[in-house]
Design a protein around this nucleic acid. Structure first.
Lengths: 162, 162
DNA sequence: GAAGGAGCATTGACGCGTCAATCACTTGGG
DNA sequence: CCCAAGTGATTGACGCGTCAATGCTCCTTC
């Protein structure tokens, strides 16, 4: 295979090769295992789920540690309903509070509680360490570059496809 | 950065760069989106979930289209309990059957039903097409090679780390 | 200022995944 | 032979994610 062929997508070929399918499976399996380990470690260190973490991160970066529910959903790219369910569970645990929105009576504002902020702060460093341990430490700079390129390609492709 | 540095893992550095963290997030988000789309398409075309598909694939490749529950769990790398719950749901839908094992009264054998085999057969081609469409068509051969290398590195790293 | 459509958020139902507990059976040491 | 430890599999509880349906409120238009 010459250089030109190596840089042309395989779109025109009839089917994926078994090698390509194996890479697909490995992508799915390996990322699943990564998520699994990170989630387990996060839970062990802070009793937070990855979802909790995403919500708390967005809130802690927001002005006044509060966001409209819809803004929060947009920030972390979640469906409304998923967020609503999740906020219900987090509210029970005292991590966040939901208050009526002053400017729109339909809306709710989600506020980070002191407790939530404290727990999130305590979780960040260990979590970053865990990501480094399981993922960051494995790859060299060239691999990071290559992965970045691949992910950009996939993202673009996904956006194009509807 | 010279060539030697580019090929040395970043393990010794204190923290991941924000670029590296962004790549991590993109990896998680992009693969999630890929799984989401594939699952939706599979469900639309065959009313199967990705889990159903994995189970049916393993069974349809097995001798006599049947496997001991524990062998099936090993084949698709699932926890026993997860498999047990899933088989319960699949049995209700008539995709599989559970029968007592002749050689070990504790055990169960999982058998693919005719209906299950039929539905699986009908699902394979569209599913392969969907994987190609969303994933395979995006990448060129060089990117496949790079991804293969990255995934092998990650897998090795994960296995090493416990 | 009333009607109707759009937007914000929640809810219920259901499939899925994990953890801990449990039950039934097998096996091996005494 | 018996019992203790180990193994195969299931169950229940609970958190999580999606879909479809719902309830309010806001906004536009007439």
């Amino acid at each position: 295979m010459n250089e030109t062929e190596r840089n042309r997508p395989a779109a025109e070929r009839r089917r994926m090769t078994s090698q390509e399918l194996a890479i697909w499976r490995s992508l799915i399996d390996t990322t699943a295992e990564l998520r699994r380990r990170l989630a387990a470690q996060l839970a062990a260190e802070s009793s937070l789920s990855p979802g909790d973490y995403a919500v708390l991160l967005a809130l802690s970066e927001a002005d006044g540690r509060r966001l409209r529910s819809s803004e929060l959903a947009a920030a972390i790219d979640w469906e409304r309903s998923r967020l609503s369910h999740h906020l219900g569970r987090m509210e029970k645990r005292g991590l966040i509070e939901r208050v009526e929105c002053a400017t729109d009576n339909r809306g709710a504002e989600v506020v980070l509680t002191e407790e939530g902020a404290r727990i999130f702060r305590a979780a960040t460093a260990p979590h970053a360490r865990a990501i480094k341990q399981h993922f960051g430490d494995a790859l060299n700079p060239a691999q990071f570059d290559a992965l970045d390129d691949i992910l950009r390609t996939l993202t673009t492709h996904l956006e194009a496809g509807k």
